[in-house]
């Protein structure tokens, strides 16, 4: 009873704060100065039509590197928590038989059709990051969803964890190396003018932004696939 009262008081006080936020909110009529300068600078200096990707990979590129570090820490902690799991003691033969159960035919057929489409779609999102909505992070998440579908539909499928770990580390190291190359050859860390800017709106344009998108997509995809692989029940 007391607990429900405390919960109600907490929710009511948060509700009051949120209500004052919602009442005092007025829509902006024009952009704030920082946003206006970003919208003006990204097409001119970086040559990228997509303002959001230009901000994420060049002007706020250091924050993106921090987010990549957060993802790496999450993968390491999931590996630490679940890597040492042994099969819990006291399993009967019934549980042992159920672990090698194949998935149903509907899921297998659906996976046969959907996984190529998912991979093509992920590649399209990653490569189109600088032209239209998309980018490295979103494409990596779509790759991981394709891997999840394969893990569900074919339980005997064992992704090569060594290969995934080496790929993801290489992609991360190359990302930092491209950033340092920007420091050496152009304006600053993760400056994208180390590669030619090209024609505005073409496929190979906007300097190093497509390269950074691909590296980011590969790293995020491998990271999330490794996390998903750890959740499978172990066979001893």
């Amino acid at each position: 009873m007391i607990q429900r009262l405390c919960v109600a008081v907490a929710i009511a006080s948060f509700g009051l704060v949120f209500a004052s936020l919602a009442v005092g909110y007025t829509e902006q009529n024009s952009l704030r100065p920082l946003a206006e300068s970003y919208v003006r600078l990204v097409p001119h200096e970086l040559g990228a039509p997509n303002v959001i990707t230009g901000i994420l990979l060049t002007y706020r590129g250091f924050d993106t590197l921090g987010e990549v570090a957060v993802l790496f820490m999450v993968a390491a902690s999931v590996g630490l928590l679940l890597g040492a799991r042994r099969r819990p003691r006291g399993t009967s033969t019934r549980d042992r038989a159920s672990e090698s159960r194949a998935s149903s035919e509907i899921v297998r057929t659906g996976a046969d059709i959907l996984v190529p489409l998912i991979c093509i779609f992920a590649a399209y999102i990653i490569m189109n990051g600088h032209l239209s909505a998309g980018g490295g992070f979103q494409g990596g998440a779509v790759i991981a969803s394709g891997v999840l579908l394969t893990l569900l539909a074919f339980p005997q499928y064992q992704p090569n964890l060594e290969f995934l770990s080496i790929t993801e580390s290489l992609a991360g190291a190359l990302f930092v190396l491209v950033g340092i190359a920007g420091l050496v050859m152009a304006g600053g860390f993760l400056d994208n003018r180390i590669l030619p800017l090209g024609q505005f709106g073409a496929f190979f344009s906007a300097g190093a932004i497509p390269l950074l998108s691909v590296l980011l997509g590969v790293k995020v995809g491998c990271e999330l696939s490794v996390i998903l692989e750890r959740f499978r029940p172990k066979k001893s």
Binding site: S98, S103, S104, I106, V107, G110, I113, L114, L117, L152
Partner: peptide
């Protein structure tokens, strides 16, 4: 088309797992 392909398959997999 994509919605019709993916929603029923995922729900079927969930129901089979729940039965299992």
């Amino acid at each position: 088309y994509f919605v019709l392909m993916t929603n029923p398959i995922s729900s079927h997999a969930l129901a089979r797992a729940a039965y299992g």
